[in-house]
Amino acid sequence: MPFVTRFAPSPTGHLHRGHAYSALSAFMAARDAGGRFLLRIEDIDVTRSRPEYEAAILEDLSWLGLAWENPVRRQSDHLADYHAAIEALRTRGLVYRCFKTRKEIDIGRAPHEPSIPYAGSPLPPDEEAERLARGEAFAWRLSLAAAREALGGFETLTFVEEGAGPNGETGLIQARPETAGDIVLARKDVGVAYHLAVVHDDALQGVTHVIRGNDLFEAAHIQRLLQALLDLPTPIYRHHGLLLGPDGKRYAKRDKAQTLRELRAAGVSPEALSYELGFV
């Protein structure tokens, strides 16, 4: 079986050390397996994605010494594919229109309390028609109840973890999609949601191994459900630990972590950075 993996950044900011670690992990794994390495630009968040960040991603990864196949898949060019997948789920009664805002769902929850997985149901047809006629915004949500009925339960949903989750989870993992609740698959402001686009593209591109940070380990549970509902293959997962900064916190765009372009401007070589990250 051919080995195919990918690095799939979102162009919502500049890459930092944490991104470099994840990209090199996937690239080196493909090289060592004699496999293929893909680059995918996940720019479905139209409110935050910027062309200049996409250009910077290509520049930074080239500087690191990575090479990938062309053409690079840009998700914003394929929105019709994702909407077709949602329509396929809709015709089977697996998704529903949800008019609730995040604020409405969280009413009564103290700020320090974690969000409770949301579970809803379709509105009565007359009420839904009225709200649509008024032009009210809605999101398409996946119905866990309908999905459970369609599959006869979630007990057969498993995936193989070759790395480790945040609590050391490894080996054959029982998927627990119920922990995510009725997730949003699409909404007006950000278009198609991450989970749907990812499972669609991984299948389309023949990805056999998903190599990414263990902050996304929980995402594998709901993605496994979507794979089953859409009759898509399940890749092998290999989650890795997150790179931490001197303060003990993981590198993050929102915390203005030092970017690769800043390291480059400071005279750091790609070889030195690779060595620092544990790649030789």
Results as ranks from 00 to 15, higher is better:
M28L: 12
Q205T: 10
I183A: 03
L79Y: 06
L79W: 08
G108Y: 07
S143Y: 06
Q223C: 10
E169Y: 02
S49G: 06
P235T: 11
D231A: 15
S22H: 06
T101P: 06
F7N: 01
A175M: 12
Y21A: 15
Y53W: 07
L38A: 04
R238V: 10
L144Q: 06
A23K: 05
G248C: 11
L263D: 01
G93S: 08
D60I: 11
F99T: 10
H195R: 02
D106T: 15
L24S: 05
G93C: 07
A252W: 04
A180E: 08
T158S: 09
H240M: 14
M28Y: 11
L260Y: 00
K188W: 03
R141I: 06
V160S: 02
G168W: 12
G213A: 12
L94T: 05
K256A: 15
R6V: 01
D126Q: 09
V268D: 03
G165F: 07
I173G: 02
R102V: 12
Q174Y: 05
H78S: 03
E262Q: 15
E130H: 14
R97T: 03
T158G: 00
L94A: 07
S10K: 01
A219K: 04
Y194G: 01
P246I: 12
E104K: 09
P2V: 15
G278I: 11
L79S: 02
M1V: 13
P9M: 00
L204I: 06
K188M: 06
